[in-house]
Design a protein around this nucleic acid. Structure first.
Lengths: 210, 210, 210, 210
DNA sequence: AATGAATGAGCGTTCATTCAT
DNA sequence: AATGAATGAACGCTCATTCAT
């Protein structure tokens, strides 16, 4: 049993090394820099050994990207209090997303803007799976909105559309930061966005300092 | 002098042929399909000759993309009446942008989502130059907003931020269409967005059928 | 001693499993499909262990092929009655050989013909084109035979079949020389073959020194 | 025009160099030795340049083999007098084919037999061992022939040569079936061959239905 | 000015073989 | 005796770029 475990540990270590190298390369130099030779070198093994852990290059990149997406979703969930009141929770969601994206800045720069992942068109199973992460988050926002509207805390809005735009505005805010197009701090940007959304929803407490 | 001019005309013709071929390839098959051989073939010259017009492949692609961006901006301007009232003009801007993006659908699918352009990091002069087109459009929107607020037609907003978000929401709407993630028509999407922005600005006429 | 024997039995079992897997692979998918990984997998052991039974891949393939050859010879012997009269026995030998080869069809297809030229099966256009050369030559021989029979120079024969066999015998004669399996000169071989064919056709001049 | 011709000459020269290198490699070391790197090296150009002359490796090998086949056919035709009488012409055909095959000996060794089994040349102990199976069977046939001749059942023949040819014809019959080049049944083929051999031996009972 | 043949570095992938366990 | 992770060399192929013409 110790033996099995030791093997498993090594397996996992190699696998994680490879994914980590892949992520580093994507973040630092973009998808074109991800060659089997470089990933292997950075992970401290040989090119051929990669194929013991991943069927091919595409699978490896996909695994790396999916891992990132999953980590980000987990990161956002960790920062949100599910029992908070709608407006507070909306603020938390926005704050969490911006914070997580800030953390994964370098990598997202490529991820958000590159289309290589969608080689087979957006119809491919892999591409659809990745979209799920975005859509799940959007659905969360929508639920909060509907709750707030039902309780008359928010001005009545088309919840689906509003959720989409709030999510997109948040992503755009993050992107603007990634591209270093703004000089204000993360906190300033966050408060600015929250104020804006509050205005939209005519939230009674939107001027309370969140 | 006539000779020089004739030379210049040929130069320009070749150059434009190459950019046109590059654009067609990007639009139809994505960046990976852009090889010097194919571009040359489609432009009716030889591979080697490309290097008389562009220093290398990256410069050629960049020039092609820049041309597209410029054309799109011109296309939007053509569709907007500069003498229209603020709310009407805002609607025109949004409509124009969505229409132009719809027209350039295939090309944008690659352009918006691929990062190959930013190879040298966002610090490169080329990347900055491309961003200017986006920022110019944003500045236009901002000007309209400020005018509307001054005349008390719009609820008071931070014009800079509002302009950014309105622009981003518009782009997001277009992107959602590019990825075919929505089943509603272009017109429905456009009206939905306009309604949403009108709500935001508490525009008195936002329910007037624009 | 019982122990040694048990070891030997296991040894033999493994060895036979490997040879069997090798044969199956050659028969089903050709030489290129014979990789150490697949042979090991089909034999239920690991790649590394193969090297305990065979020095290397070549030795293993050779052993497998040799086994097939031995089995075929045994198969023919089993079908022949050693006490039969010459003509009957000759017929039995021919029948047995054809039947055995038919049974080992799939494997021989690879063994005798090696697929490299015939990648897409013998149906491929390329393979068919190559066969044309052989068939053209056969047709030439046939025409000559028919002419000779018509003029009563040759004993009456089925021209088509005779042409096929004459061509094949000629090729076989050459092959035997290629493999250096004969000590006689090309001229001697040639005259021998011609004498043989003359006998077959009861050619009146077959002893004329051609 | 001189220019076109000069280009054409260079083209042809390269193309022929490549085919020649390919043939040399096949002849000297078998198909496995034909790698793009080695062919290029022997032809005095680089790997990449091969692709200016052939679409891929398979096409190149095929072109080389086809060229050989065509050359051999031409060679045979050159040696045959179309106005000769049937028997003379048949002899010429046989002689020509044997001579041509002798000339292309080395290459055919691979082409006809594919060396995969004979990697170390036909001198290897392993290859010799395999041949024993064929020879043993041939010896059996020979014994039967001798017995039949002794008993005056068969027309007198050189038993050794006859055994060789009967064996080869049998193998050829089977091969033709493997390649699906015949539509008749195994039984029909068998009877056809036996009839033919009976004819050869003037066997009194050869029409007896064996 | 223009050609296009040629280069050369690089790509993803395979696989026989080894060796620490 | 047996494993299987790892190696390392090779493979077929692509393509941006160069340069003699």
């Amino acid at each position: 049993m110790a033996k099995v475990s030791r093997k498993q540990i090594l397996q996992d270590f190699r696998s994680r090394s490879l994914l980590e190298s892949t992520r580093r390369l994507i973040a630092a130099e973009g998808f074109d820099a991800v060659t089997m030779a470089r990933v292997a070198e950075e992970a401290g093994i040989t090119k051929g050994a990669i194929y013991l852990y991943f069927r091919n290059k595409d699978q490896m990149i996909l695994a790396a990207v999916e891992e990132i997406a999953a980590e980000m979703v987990r990161g956002i969930e960790r920062r949100v209090d599910v029992r908070a009141e709608p407006w507070d929770r909306l603020c938390q969601l926005i704050r969490a997303q911006l914070a997580i994206m800030e953390e994964n800045k370098e990598l997202l720069r490529t991820l958000l803007l590159d289309r290589r992942l969608m080689k087979g068109g957006s119809r491919s199973a892999a591409a659809r799976r990745l979209l799920k992460y975005r859509q799940k988050h959007e659905a969360d926002i929508r639920a909060v909105l509907e709750k707030g509207v039902r309780r008359k805390l928010f001005h009545s809005v088309e919840a689906e559309r509003a959720a989409f735009y709030i999510n997109e505005m948040t992503i755009s805010t993050a992107q603007r930061r990634l591209l270093a197009l703004t000089r204000s701090s993360l906190e300033q940007e966050t408060q600015g966005l929250i104020r804006f959304v509050g205005l939209l929803l005519r939230n009674k407490n939107f001027n309370k300092g969140h």
